[in-house]
C-alpha cells in the first residue's frame, strides 16, 4: 500500500488554508491545517509530519 505523505499546514487566512489543503489533498497528501503557530506546535508534538509548511 502506498503511504501518504503527511503535511502540517499553518495558515491564518481561512480561505487560503482551506483551498491549499483541498488542493494538496487532491494531489494525494494527508494535510493537517492549523490556523496559528500555537495550534501548529501542539499538532507537531502530538503527531509526526513529513513536511511543515507555514507562510
Amino acid at each position: 500500500m502506498k503511504t501518504k505523505f503527511k503535511i502540517l499546514l499553518a495558515e491564518d487566512d481561512p480561505n487560503l488554508g482551506a483551498l491549499l489543503s483541498d488542493f494538496l489533498e487532491a494531489e494525494g497528501f494527508d494535510v493537517k491545517l492549523c490556523k496559528d503557530g500555537l495550534i501548529a506546535s501542539q499538532a507537531l508534538s502530538e503527531a509526526s509530519f513529513d513536511l511543515f509548511y507555514w507562510t
Binding site: 487566512d13 480561505n15 487560503l16 483551498l19 491549499l20 488542493f23 487532491a26
Partner: peptide
C-alpha cells in the same frame, strides 16, 4: 497577494477536479 493566490488556487482546483 493573498486574495490573488486564493482566486488562482480555487481556479486550479476547479480545473483539476
Amino acid at each position: 497577494k493573498t486574495p490573488i493566490t486564493n482566486i488562482a488556487l480555487a481556479g486550479k482546483i476547479m480545473m483539476k477536479e
